[in-house]
Write a protein that binds this DNA or RNA. Structure first.
Lengths: 138, 138
DNA sequence: GGTAGTCTCTCTAGTGGCTAGAGGTTCAAG
DNA sequence: CTTGAACCTCTAGCCACTAGAGAGACTACC
């Protein structure tokens, strides 16, 4: 049994974040000390590692709740886990596509400006004023 | 002179968003009607188009404030505009790189699971529990 | 000039996923 | 038994909006 600070050190998750996870029902301490301080065990450590990893991969809190729920019922089908992962993958790919389109526009816009002239002629400012100068829709 | 609803229709920016932009100092109406309703002119329309375009490219409110400030002083050097654009481009590229790394992990994880077995064996759940299964750092 | 129906007003609160800080209590080492 | 770090709860703030309540203004038609 160890403290929240120890748990934080072992997982790299900040103390207030751990408390926040408790508040939203992701992680409950194994118990409390006589003086009401949180105490965690190995299961809590593992759980927080799971959460951290899932967050790093971009899963939202609701998805993580579902995944944890599934993890606690090992006899159920893992179909929903796969669906959640695929949905996340699709969301990431979508985002990448959007960002690539932005990258293209931004590099075109930034390249068009030398940074040396007056703002009147600035290609950055002109591009923002006139959407017609863009090659992509966004 | 036209109403906020008309401005919204012409730009595709929602009415509450326009009011929010006013609150944070991005866009002031040209005036008010006798009954205190906002009235906009062509300059407001143009300004909101600029803001919308900049937001679509991912610029933050502070950056947009700076860009508008520069736009209103056409004799100043446009260096800062270029810097802002390049910083945004760099941020977008960073984000893309991060997302690509996530994409790789996620597709590996999702591919490892058939969705048909019990949760006990689910590769998605096992991957999240054991960071060591990952090939990328994230 | 009345009225119906749409638009607009201000204000408050909520979103997601935390982060920061105040003011007070508990713990562990010496 | 004291010191100082760690911990507690609670509130407020971040970004860029979005939603909704309750009240007032505008416009088209009769």
């Amino acid at each position: 049994m160890f403290s929240i600070g120890e748990l934080s050190r072992r997982t790299g998750v900040k103390v207030p974040t751990i408390r926040y996870y408790e508040e939203i029902g992701l992680l409950t301490p194994a118990g409390r000390s006589a003086g009401n301080q949180r105490r965690y065990d190995a299961a809590g450590l593992e759980r927080l590692g799971f959460i951290r990893h899932a967050r790093a991969l971009g899963f939202g809190i609701d998805e993580i709740l579902s995944l944890i729920d599934l993890q606690q019922h090992p006899d159920r089908s893992c179909q929903s886990a796969m669906e959640i992962a695929e949905a996340q993958l699709a969301a990431v790919r979508d985002k990448i596509a959007q960002l690539r389109s932005l990258e293209q526009e931004l590099s075109r816009i930034a390249d068009g400006c030398e940074g040396s002239g007056p703002a009147r002629q600035c290609y950055v400012l002109r591009s923002l004023s006139d959407h017609g100068l863009c090659s992509n829709p966004h």
